[in-house]
Computed example of a mutant assay.
Amino acid sequence: MGSTDAESRDRDSAGRARNARPRDGLGRPLPYGAEGVARQPEGVVRTPEETVREAQELLDSGRPFHAHEVFEDAWKSRPGEERTLWRGLAQLAVGLTHAARGNVTGGARLLRRGAGAVEEWAAECGDSLPHGMDLAGLADWARVLADDVERDGAGAVEARERAPRLRGHGAS
């Protein structure tokens, strides 16, 4: 007989859907049994400092999809007033992911949406350097990258080369 329904649908021990397929560095699913990169554990509660540090390491290594997952954990676990910030940072990371995959429209759209979210948070909260992050620089980085992706067409960008600096001057 075949696998059980739960096994065939990649469920965790609590029955929640979890895609267990291995993934490449940009988060694309690979065939079962293929060698993938280590995935970020889901649902980890990190301090803002840990979140920024881990996400920067992933961005620097050309793994923006995985940085997006770190930001998503912060988005889901931080207090309500910070959620717009972490959601915007997740959008920036997934926008870079799409641009690195060659998805011009999705990449540019998410980069601009993320830029707007981090600017909105800074305007509402009066803090353009939360946890040491340069939100104005990140928004500028995202819009320049979105413009470059649209201008250059369907070619994928190199995620490691175009990764932002979360602290400092926007782009690395």
Rank of each mutant, 00 (worst) to 15 (best):
G25W: 08
R11D: 00
E42S: 06
G43M: 07
R28V: 14
D147L: 07
V104M: 02
A142M: 06
R113V: 15
P79W: 08
E35K: 15
V104Q: 06
Q40V: 15
A6R: 09
L26E: 05
S8V: 08
G126K: 13
P64V: 15
A74M: 09
E119G: 01
R167Q: 04
L85M: 09
R78I: 09
A171K: 11
G126W: 06
A115M: 06
G168W: 01
F65T: 02
E7K: 03
L89M: 14
S13C: 05
G27W: 12
G126E: 02
N103P: 00
V144R: 05
M133H: 00
W141M: 07
S61R: 15
A74L: 10
E158D: 14
A146I: 15
V104S: 11
A38G: 03
R167H: 04
G153D: 03
T84G: 00
G88E: 01
E72L: 09
R160N: 01
E124D: 00
M133R: 12
V144A: 01
R39H: 11
A108I: 10
D12A: 12
R46P: 02
L58D: 00
A136W: 01
D12Y: 10
A163M: 10
Q56N: 01
T84A: 00
L96C: 02
G170S: 13
R160I: 07
R11E: 03
E50L: 14
V94T: 08
S61Q: 11
S77R: 11
V149Q: 01
G95Y: 14
E42C: 04
P48A: 08
L89D: 05
P130S: 05
H68Y: 13
A142N: 07
P48F: 14
A122T: 06
L166H: 02
D24I: 13
R78V: 15
S13A: 14
M133F: 03
A14I: 13
D152W: 12
E72D: 03
L26K: 04
S172D: 12
E119W: 04
H98W: 04
A67E: 03
P31V: 12
G27E: 02
A99P: 00
A20L: 15
L135Q: 09
A34R: 04
M1S: 06
E42Y: 12
S13Q: 10
A163L: 08
E57S: 07
G102N: 09
P130M: 12
C125Y: 03
V44G: 00
W86R: 02
E42R: 15
W86L: 07
N103V: 04
G62R: 13
E120G: 01
A171T: 15
V37D: 00
L145S: 01
R16Y: 14
D10I: 06
L145M: 08
A90N: 04
L138P: 00
D12W: 11
C125H: 08
P29D: 00
R28H: 02
V144Q: 01
L59W: 13
Q56Y: 09
M1F: 04
R165A: 15
T47V: 11
A99F: 05
G27Y: 11
P164F: 14
E42P: 07
V157R: 12
T97C: 04
N19W: 15
G168V: 13
R46Y: 10
A17D: 02
